[in-house]
Design a protein around this nucleic acid. Structure first.
Length: 408
DNA sequence: ACTCCACAGGAAAATTGGGGTA
DNA sequence: TACCCCAATTTTCCTGTGGAGT
């Protein structure tokens, strides 16, 4: 026998497409969601008879399958009904005003030329949309992902208007599917919307780790075959996902990254170690991605927080941050915003998990938020300074110095 | 017990900017 | 061109507040 046999480095190869483990993959099977699917189908079955379907509200945390299941069920429904049904998917994070929603719907259902992005009055867009929908003569399903954003922002105006479109115009037949992760969503609605929304609600409970494993395993098999991975690695992904409020997306992402890392290493199989590495990687990726997509002022505020923390290791306060921010703006050549606004940015940054704040009273010295960076600030600084707008910011240490002098 | 700091965070006014009509 | 409508973003103005100093 060949003495080199035991030094086989050949790594495993993919048996299937890795996109099965990507966010855009739309599965055909939904383990542990049979009940929800059946109930949705039941609620929408009246469309098959040409009757109106009632509106639906779906509750559930992120990664519990609400969106995928909805897309799945609606696509199956349109298979049955044929060309007589159009589905319009809207993510309410992007379209959160009555105006932008109506425009979006009009443009996707009726074509991009029917209404302009802006310029017309809301009334005119409404009229145009309604008459357009009448001419369409189709059943319409409007999926509102993250509806809670809609209600938070401007009361229930957008929803109210949509319900008016679907319910108050003979000749228009539409139903709304609202998706939310806010369990108190319905209570927050104002009465005029509540009364119209003859709601049927379906809850998507978080997955536990066994259920996550059931979701993960078939997909992993499709990618890797039966060998090439430790089952404990899959279990670990499932366990981490379960910890994160039963988040299937998280578990799937972890598995994908773990496989990618193992491939890059030309490893023989995917092990727990790769899952741990994947977790670290994902965290950094998420951080870089959120920082990269931050608006300029937000970046400056975050940078100010970091610099402030470097100057004085104990927590920074809003006032300190905003004075550093002012200096940075001057340096970069951007008009600074008010402290009121900075305060809002700080809340945003906290929501993104980039900083954490504690409201504290310093007695005689007022009441303010103590602000701390969460995570590796050197990395953060690097990602912020990647922004081409900040090319003239120069040496950060230097700028820190000059700020220290200016303060107090 | 009372003050008063340094803000938080709500509400409303003002500004900005796309796009219309005449 | 001037002027209007609308949404979104910021500013202005505001009221509220926990606790160190007195």
């Amino acid at each position: 026998m060949n003495p080199f046999d035991k030094y086989q480095f050949e790594s495993f190869s993919l048996k299937g497409d890795l996109t099965v483990l990507s966010a855009t993959h739309e599965p055909e099977e939904f383990p542990h969601r049979e009940e929800q699917i059946a109930r949705m189908a039941d609620a929408m079955s009246s469309l098959l008879l040409g009757m109106k379907s009632s509106h639906l509200i779906l509750y559930g945390k992120t990664g519990t399958g609400k969106t995928s299941v909805t897309k799945f069920v609606t696509s199956k429904l349109s298979e049955k009904i044929g060309g007589n049904l159009t589905v319009c998917y809207i993510n309410c994070q992007n379209y959160d005003s009555p105006y932008s929603i109506l425009v979006f719907i009009a443009r996707t259902l009726l074509g991009p030329d029917i209404v302009p992005q802006s310029g017309w009055t809301l009334d005119r867009i409404y009229e145009e949309l309604v008459s357009g929908l009448k001419n369409l003569k189709k059943e319409i399903i409007i999926i509102l992902d993250e509806v809670d954003k809609l209600v938070e922002k401007n009361g229930g105006d957008s929803l109210y208007l949509l319900l008016k479109v679907t319910d108050e115009n003979p000749g228009v037949s539409g139903s709304i599917i609202g998706i939310t992760n806010d369990t108190a969503f319905y209570e927050k609605l104002d009465p005029r919307v509540k009364s119209r929304l003859n709601k049927e609600s379906i809850v998507f409970p978080p997955y536990n780790s066994e259920q996550l494993r059931d979701i993960l395993l078939p997909r992993v098999r499709r990618v890797l075959g039966d060998e090439n991975y430790d089952e404990t690695a899959v279990n670990l992904c499932a366990a981490i996902g379960a910890q994160e409020h039963g988040d299937a997306r998280k578990a799937i992402d972890l598995m994908r990254v773990a496989i990618e890392l193992a491939l890059r290493d030309s490893a023989k199989r995917v092990t727990r170690e790769y899952v741990y590495k994947a977790r670290d990687n994902l965290e950094i990726d998420i951080m870089r991605e959120t920082i990269k997509t931050l608006p300029v002022h937000s970046k400056l505020v975050l940078l100010s927080v970091i610099l402030c923390g470097e100057a004085r290791p104990n927590s920074a306060t809003t006032g300190e941050v905003s004075s550093i921010y002012n200096h940075l703006c001057e340096r970069v050549g951007i008009a600074p915003l008010t402290q009121r606004r900075i305060s809002d940015f700080l809340t945003d940054l906290e929501d993104y998990g980039l900083i954490s704040t504690t409201l504290k009273s310093l007695g005689r010295y007022g009441r303010t938020r103590l602000i701390r960076i969460t995570g590796r600030e050197n990395d953060m600084k690097r990602y912020i300074l990647d922004d081409p707008d900040f090319s003239n910011i120069g040496d950060v240490k230097q700028s820190r110095q000059f700020k220290l002098d200016e303060r107090i």
